[in-house]
Design a protein around this nucleic acid. Structure first.
Lengths: 348, 348
DNA sequence: CTGAAAGCGCTTACAG
DNA sequence: CTGAAAGCGCTTACAG
């Protein structure tokens, strides 16, 4: 957790500590050229270390409980289909407390990360919500230097606990999806896994296993196909599962996108959902509702996770207690039209 | 177009004009309670009129060509599936010029619009990109009072030209989709229209008509079904078209979401895409690629529209010339697997 | 390359 | 409810 930013990290405080005058620090801050390299570096270090933030003439800095003005919302990339869901939740909660949100993506190149950080610093937001699958440690330490509260929304991982993290119950979701299929009479249930290096993939897989084992069904490794959460990998996994000698009658895919890939693999084989094969996804992205047939899936409350992130940020800013560094919101099985009783099941 | 903001709308300038002291204006700005109602109102009006923006102690205001720091990106609602596409484009371009973006939604209630505006004002962004289907005139005049450059991204409408607007070639897109189907041998081609009050719906419909007429096919009003751009209306339109005595062999829907609704209507009737019926959409949202079968559609370059909006804003800020108040980017037909030769066509 | 001085825009007690 | 005064954080010439 970042040290509490000292109450008045002003230009003159920094100047005093660096043994220069205030104007010199000001010049460094404004990127003027005429400062000796050593001086500049010394000042820049202090600036970072002390978490300097421009304060205008508002007097004695941020007061406890002061209205928050701007929250940074940071994605790895904006091409994930769940980005909007989270944006909506965060925007909604921020709006409710009269705050704005600054959305940005850390573009791949390391060089640009640095520029991006400078941006965040210069717009002086009051807190940051990070949505990220891979929160590398370098970035994290850079963020600490911002001296603002940070909350991580982490729908896929299970990061370490130095920063409050908001996730969802992946294991329970995997279990409920599998149980749903078993209750429909399915016995051969395929699983399309997510990226193996992410904890959520493991949790969903274990939920699947637990469901089978509870029902006394043996886990057949042949029925577990690798995937990477995206459409294409779901499609390939679907092909693989239905090329088996004894193919499954139902498939649980660890993401909606992979479930849609499975749809396509089935369509190309002339198999129908749900008449021939049942399919369950994970996420409940809007497109799950608009697929044909509408997809039964495990809902991950991304918007609520966004809202909770903002509320947590708020508490952090007010130096209130956080219940727990890791919160997992409940997943929920949404039954639509892609699941039906197993064609091979004994009719009851 | 907003009047150019005067160079130095300072608190004391406002105070002088209002015949009060600077501290009083300051109190109004900071929402302190102890100001006489009439005084407050007089000051608030002047503040709006003169486009007051907090300037800290940066000396003489914004200099021409100064690095831009924050761009406001405003949606009506964040539930539109194309929101991310635009966000990505705007973020990308803004990132490229070391600027951040503040994303917000105007929530429905009028009361909250006012609060939202105050927020925009107080975060002092350097420009605003509006994405909106219904840019009501009240909101627009409020925005003028912000005295910052504004660009409207308008994928659906054709607003009046007091503000630079970026759209796409809806008519040409409608024409190319229809021509594609005709070239595949289809003669009875259904059309699912968009919300009739929006100009883009009209343009797409006219493109459809033009395509038919060019090929010497009579326009059958029965084949034109009403829709509202969303999934449900597409579904209903599909039901209606395929309940006709002489149903179409192909359908062009004025949005991807409606096309997916048509998919579902077809599935429920046991009809297959594209073997029995071809379907074309409009937008090329990511989900078009992930539908089953992947959807042939007219691509609207939403991300490029976002990028262009930022570049236009930049020129406005630098007081450079804008080529044209209304720019339309080209649409492009993306052929995937939802279209095939008409089953009733004479084989060539 | 750096600092002392002047100044800007704003806010905060304080007095009435 | 309002203003004169003091002060804060920062920046901009200017001088060396």
């Amino acid at each position: 957790m970042a040290e509490t930013p000292s109450r008045s990290v002003t230009i003159s405080a920094i100047a005093a500590e660096a043994g220069v005058s205030a104007p010199t620090v000001s010049r460094v801050l404004n990127g003027r050229g005429d400062v000796a390299p050593e001086t500049r570096e010394r000042i820049e270090n202090l600036l970072r270390l002390r978490g300097y933030r421009r304060r205008g003439s508002r007097g004695d800095g941020q007061r406890r409980g002061e209205r928050i003005g701007l929250i940074d919302l940071v994605f790895n990339d904006l091409d994930s289909p769940w980005a909007v869901e989270i944006i909506r939740g965060v925007e909604d909660a921020a709006h409710g407390m009269d705050s704005g949100i600054a959305v940005s993506a850390i573009h791949r190149q390391a060089s640009s990360t640095r520029k991006w950080l400078q941006n965040v610093r210069s717009r002086a937001s009051d807190g940051a919500v990070l949505v990220t699958t891979d929160l590398d440690s370098e970035l994290r330490s850079e963020l600490e230097e911002l001296h603002i509260p940070v909350v991580v929304i982490d729908p896929v991982g299970l990061s370490d606990l130095t920063v409050p993290t908001i996730g969802c119950t992946n294991w329970a979701g995997g279990l409920s999806a599998t149980t749903h299929l078993i209750e429909l009479g399915h016995r051969r249930i395929g699983f399309v896994a997510g990226r193996p290096e992410l904890w959520c993939s493991r949790a969903r897989l274990d939920g699947y296993r637990a469901g089978l084992e509870t029902a006394g069904i043996e886990v057949d490794p042949e029925l577990i196909a690798p995937g990477e959460f995206n459409y294409e990998s779901g499609f390939r996994a679907g092909e693989r599962l239905f090329d088996l000698d004894d193919p499954p009658t139902a498939v649980f895919a660890a993401s909606d996108q992979m479930a849609l890939g499975v749809y396509e693999a089935l369509r190309q084989r002339g198999l129908r959902v749900p008449d021939d094969v049942s399919v369950v996804g994970f996420d409940d992205l809007p497109q799950a509702r608009w697929s044909s047939p509408p997809l039964t899936t495990v809902r991950q409350p991304l918007d609520d996770m966004g809202r909770l992130a903002v509320r947590t940020l708020r508490r952090l800013m007010d130096s209130e207690e956080i219940e727990s560094p890791r919160v997992e919101l409940a997943t929920e099985l949404i039954v639509r039209d892609s699941t039906a009783p197993s064609p091979t099941a004994t009719k009851k």
